[in-house]
Design a protein around this nucleic acid. Structure first.
Lengths: 154, 154
DNA sequence: GACTCATACGTGTATATACTCATTTCACCA
DNA sequence: TGGTGAAATGAGTATATACACGTATGAGTC
């Protein structure tokens, strides 16, 4: 007697899926992202855009591919996100010397908004760390880092 | 002498923003989600859909709002995600006795796909845990839980 | 210089996410 | 019974994400 190929073995224990790293990461990301978005709302930018503006400012003039590698972000995702910031006037996207590349820089308006957003971000960050405790903050960052490493390893 | 109101004080140290919990969570979520998506690709569903199917199966017939509260997910986001699963034939959405509500259930096709996906999920999960170590897995879950708690606290 | 290949990038399409606002239905009360 | 407010939901709009595919440009070779 064989069991059906489409229903092999006993019913799985789906309760185990509550420990799924992806599910829990997404859940946490949603709540935490909203926390930062709420804090940054007076400035008109979101947490994602804040992080991206910081990255563009730090990396100076930079190509899309370079920025994507830094942020461990899909290149095409980054393109769309940059387009939003460009439309808002916070970054400038010009053609590079190598005309295949795009040269991304932060604008003066971007700098003003970034400076306005910074204290709000600091406050939101401090709120979380205070509730979390510094040692948990430390281990969280380590865990996330290890997780990225593990998921990228093939 | 006052400093300009649009440029108050010295240049912020944007290097601190690399420790942003939101930024690091999003980054990790992207990579980890792709890990699960890759594993589940043979089944045609993604990690998000897998988690949602599990939730619908576990919660039995359930309303949209109930499911949203369980998953700590925006209600309207859940509606769109459920519509995708309905279009694929994996969940059924019927009007409840209280005709304001929707009664969401998993279909037979949904169960078949879920059972097919389960071993692939297990493998992807085990891969991550193996690279992470059981004690890091434990502390990661605790940290994420605390983080949700902290971000929800107002 | 022409051919070939690799590199950098954008577009089409689809899912995931959430805010705002409108609609339907129910419960309750005068 | 009619009115009022609350509850459950959907729709419009916008951003975030990524895969598959196509295009433009540069580099190297003959």
């Amino acid at each position: 007697m064989h069991s059906s190929p489409t229903q092999p073995g006993p019913e799985p224990n789906y309760l185990l899926c509550m420990d799924c790293a992806g599910f829990n990461l997404r859940k946490t990301m949603r709540v935490v992202s909203q926390h930062y978005d709420d804090a940054l709302r007076p400035t008109g930018i979101r947490g994602t855009q804040f992080s991206l503006l910081v990255a563009v400012k730090m990396a100076g003039p930079v190509t899309v591919t370079q920025l994507a590698e830094m942020a461990v972000m899909d290149r095409t995702t980054l393109t769309r996100n940059l387009n939003v910031l460009e439309k808002q006037g916070f970054v400038a996207i010009a053609t590079g010397t190598d005309r295949r590349t795009r040269r991304v820089t932060i604008t003066k308006e971007g700098l003003v908004t970034l400076r306005q957003a910074y204290p709000l971000w600091t406050q939101a960050q401090a709120h979380l760390i205070a509730k979390l405790g510094p040692e948990r903050q430390q281990s969280l960052m380590e865990n996330l880092s290890k997780l990225v490493e593990a998921a990228l390893a093939r």
